[in-house]
Design a protein around this nucleic acid. Sequence first.
DNA 1: GATGAATGAGCGTTCATTCAT
DNA 2: TATGAATGAACGCTCATTCAT
Lengths: 208, 208, 208, 208
Amino acid sequence: MSSASVVYLPSGKREQTKVQNRQSILDAAREVFGELGYEQATVRDIIRRTGLAAGTFYNYYRSKEEVFAALADDGARRFAPILKSLRGRGEFEGFVREAIVAYFTFMADEHAAWVALRPAGEPNLTVQGETPEMAAVFGEVKGAIEDAIARGHGPAVDAEFLAAACIGVAREVCDKMLMRRPVDINKAADFAVAMILNGIQGLHEGAL
Amino acid sequence: MSSASVVYLPSGKREQTKVQNRQSILDAAREVFGELGYEQATVRDIIRRTGLAAGTFYNYYRSKEEVFAALADDGARRFAPILKSLRGRGEFEGFVREAIVAYFTFMADEHAAWVALRPAGEPNLTVQGETPEMAAVFGEVKGAIEDAIARGHGPAVDAEFLAAACIGVAREVCDKMLMRRPVDINKAADFAVAMILNGIQGLHEGAL
Amino acid sequence: MSSASVVYLPSGKREQTKVQNRQSILDAAREVFGELGYEQATVRDIIRRTGLAAGTFYNYYRSKEEVFAALADDGARRFAPILKSLRGRGEFEGFVREAIVAYFTFMADEHAAWVALRPAGEPNLTVQGETPEMAAVFGEVKGAIEDAIARGHGPAVDAEFLAAACIGVAREVCDKMLMRRPVDINKAADFAVAMILNGIQGLHEGAL
Amino acid sequence: MSSASVVYLPSGKREQTKVQNRQSILDAAREVFGELGYEQATVRDIIRRTGLAAGTFYNYYRSKEEVFAALADDGARRFAPILKSLRGRGEFEGFVREAIVAYFTFMADEHAAWVALRPAGEPNLTVQGETPEMAAVFGEVKGAIEDAIARGHGPAVDAEFLAAACIGVAREVCDKMLMRRPVDINKAADFAVAMILNGIQGLHEGAL
DNA sequence: GATGAATGAGCGTTCATTCAT
DNA sequence: TATGAATGAACGCTCATTCAT
């Protein structure tokens, strides 16, 4: 009761614990962000789900912003190679199709993982449905499309508007796709791609 | 012995300050919501900007939800007649064009008013950029498009996806439009409409 | 809308209104104190039930303490003549019996009126059950008994303790009586009186 | 490379201040409840007297109800063994006497401690005079008497009225006893017991 | 590095009371 | 006198963050 108990662990273990703690925090944060949304989520929520002490959180991240960024970076990092293989290719049509498919696929996977991991016990919980990874990957795709268009790989139209339109279609159709069972990536991608490419086609003819 | 019993009815001064206070609160709330976003905004933020006492807020609204709703309702109410004149028309093309134009026009006006009123003194302030009115009107347009498509006024394609795509294009292009100077409603609307209608055209041919 | 409407009423009416308002406040206060208890009751609760304006309350009473006192005084005033007819009589036994009966009768009446007036619609409301009048009348009885004993009309025992014991018996038995249906004043009074008088009898013999 | 992983177990200093703080809160709460009464007391009153930060209170108790209960439980727990030794004894007279003595003794101790600790500097402060412990112990005694009578250990009279009368006598005489200097437990207990037992005696003869 | 209690600013809200009308 | 909106102190409570252990 009145003395400290000290347990010495081998150094390897300690490193392991560090990795484990960091992962615990990330996992808890993903859950919390997914369920509550970024704004509603609090550091305390994350800590609670972690089982760690409050102070421990701050050994790894300085704020909820930072954990969010870490998760987003992780998503972006995993998505980067996929995206890289698409960038820089010559023809725009192919790029759009592949980018959309890659994006939808990533989102479907992420969403599936997220749905699978959520405990079924709390059905009345408000769910935001988008993890930091998803948000980040959307940002990546957005950037890629904007880039591709700005670099002249796209048609000769108002580049910024075009990118915006592509992104809008991609995001909204993706959202709907994720709400259906089963999640049909091909159908959704076909739809989105058709909308975009046909839309552009018209722009040419209409000389916009 | 004979004295007057006086009944005070709502008269000038009182009623006037009531209206003023209500308006102060709404104005402050619009600012706060526009700058901080709904989630970050607090009742006390609104009160502070109002200069009124804390308790006074609660003579007018019971919560931030309620002020938000009041602002949103105001936006929706102002937009409703415009929208109503579009709904129920037979052909889809015309509906889309008019809806987009109406939406872009409303947003441009709202945005201009909003920008004009914001004090320039705090440039490093996080700005969300969307007032409750804008959010509400977006919701109205979204509903109108979904309705129009669901009621069969749209082409024979996946109605939900189509609505989603239209909405995505409208929102994103509108956002870009609002960032430019001058704000060119016609150009943006032409672009968005072309994307949507041409996109649909292709869907038919592609038998999606 | 923008001008004051003034209604002149004859002076008699005005006086009448004053009396009515005072009574409204007292009635509302009795209800509120009875339902919520003195501590929980707020001036606002009373005002709300009154239908009057908040400021009007302060034209009649300066605080909830004051309304409470007014109600208590009313109870005491109504009880005073009954009590007066008992005070000063020579023999203690008779005094105790009559005081108890008078007290129990008053409380039963008051309680019946109170129960009858309460709206049956809110059965889950916390009810304190004692109006200011009841509290005040208890105080009067207490004073009367203490007086009677202190003036030597009681037996030669520790006067303060005796008064305390009488009062304790009276209060607690009265409470139980009021909880039963039908309220049997005679039975309760007989019991209380017997306890007290027999108790005293023993004190004499025991030479306390 | 080789470093220690340290697990901190509850040790001296931390545990000590926790106990101290908990005690500070309980002490402050007892004072506040004693001076202001349960209803008037606020969590902030307790915190203020404690000198701790506002949030700290909530590390120990969730509400004023909970602190009150903790104090009351403490009183009841300390009184329980004394009470237990009395319950279940056959004859009623002995039970009443012992219960009264035990109750008066406990209250006298509690009251003495309470009076001794109160700072003399604020003479104009409203004092309620009853700590949660006292209230709880009164409740225990009340329950014990009601039980004993209900279980038939009492005389053949209206059990509920009898219990009420006993309790009334005990409470009121105890209050008076506590106001005198010196506090004479025996005298007060003798008085109360005589009142009760003689009173019952009369009930028998009177066939109530 | 891990712990978890302490901190105190800040939140939403209610309240008694005032005072211009 | 009646009105009822304005006031601002105070409440219960939560939070991000710190720091002695």
